[in-house]
């Protein structure tokens, strides 16, 4: 196993009318070849922008922190610093799509409504695989078949609005994979689909990832999905990663109060009579980010005098796992 992506100290800030906000602060994670990293967190915790930063897809108002490092190992073994690629450079264009592919939450909105599925697929195929038009079309049909779209030869000439939601997401997966990425970023790819379709798409993605040997970053706010698809997991809260480690480990033995809260919030079939247990409180707005540990305002175990003052360091109690919480430092334990 080798690292294909290593992100260190990623910080993102935006210039807004109300001043500069920093919704992502000091995020570090790695993705191993052929493995899936699950990125979990509530809405607004900065999952999407962290991954968009990798491909320089953030709007012009965004700035990366000076200490941010994003090192990507390309298919040919070359190490590329993603933050330093020039805009419009050939290298960046190769990374986008050819090395790293991205699937978004809204399958409808990800397609342009005025071109056929085939047109948009062939564009990517010709760009990244250097095929001629006719071959590209054949390739596209093959890809559609692969993601389980029946009658692909006809579907290829249809417009996005002629497909059902699940079909569209399958087509989007086909489109993204047809460029041949080594790393796939899936940003809540199943959220907009209904439950049965969700499971099918999830299965499809897991199978394809195994078959193609891709690395994957799978974004979701559902720890249940993580259990199904991810090898590793990173839990994000308000722009920082509060806990990370192998998925099984983290789910079986969560260290951070926030992760525990998230797990408790999953409704379980065995206890249908119990009330749902959401994590208490609301996620603070990015303009009013609390000082100290960002989670202290909602934490039931917060240590007064410590958690609201100092940011906790990352510690590792269990090998392979890391957590940012005063409860897991000797200092914090003595204060409690």
């Amino acid at each position: 196993m080798s690292k294909m992506l290593s992100v260190e100290n990623l910080s993102i800030s935006f210039r807004t009318d109300e001043g500069v906000i920093t919704p992502v602060k000091g995020v570090s994670f790695t993705v191993e070849k052929g493995r899936t990293l699950g990125l979990v967190g509530e809405s607004g915790s900065g999952k999407s922008i962290s991954t968009k930063a990798l491909m320089q897809l953030l709007p012009g108002t965004a700035r990366l922190g000076a200490a941010s490092r994003m090192i990507y190992t390309a298919k040919d073994g070359q190490q590329i610093s993603l933050g330093n690629l020039r805009h419009g450079s050939k290298e960046l264009r190769r990374i986008r799509g050819g090395e790293i592919g991205m699937i978004f939450q809204e399958p409808m909105a990800s397609f342009s409504p005025v071109y056929t599925i085939g047109n948009q697929m062939m564009e990517a195929i010709m760009l990244h695989r250097g095929l001629k038009k006719r071959e590209a079309r054949q390739f596209a049909i093959g890809m559609l078949n692969k993601v389980g779209i029946s009658n692909a030869a006809a579907r290829v000439d249809q417009y996005p609005h002629e497909l059902s939601g699940g079909m569209r997401q399958r087509a989007m997966i086909a489109l993204t994979l047809s460029a041949g990425p080594a790393l796939l970023i899936a940003d809540e790819p199943t959220t907009a689909l209904d439950v049965t379709i969700q499971a099918q798409v999830l299965d499809l993605m897991r199978d394809l990832q195994r078959e193609l040997g891709m690395g994957m970053i799978f974004i979701t706010h559902d720890l249940g999905v993580i259990a199904q698809i991810a090898d590793d997991v990173a839990v994000m809260y308000l722009g920082t990663i509060v806990e990370r480690g192998p998925a099984k480990e983290v789910i079986r033995n969560p260290q951070h109060p926030y992760t525990q809260g998230l797990l408790d919030a999953i409704p379980s079939l065995d206890h249908l009579h119990d009330r749902l247990k959401p994590v208490p409180g609301d996620i603070p707005s990015p303009t009013a980010r609390p000082g100290g540990c960002p989670f202290h305002t909602r934490c039931t175990q917060a240590i007064a005098g410590t958690c609201e003052v100092h940011e906790p360091p990352e510690t590792s109690a269990i090998p392979g796992c890391a957590v940012r919480c005063w409860l897991h430092t000797s200092q914090g334990r003595s204060a409690a």
Binding site: M55, L57, G88, L92, R93, R94, I95, R96, G97, G98, G101, M102, F104, E106, A109, S110, F111, S112, P113, Q120, E123, A124, L127, H128, M172, L175, T176, A179
Partner: peptide, 14 residues
Amino acid sequence: KLSVTAARARGVPE
């Protein structure tokens, strides 16, 4: 629109 971001993420020249 997301479709523009999606196309950009596929490496279509600007």
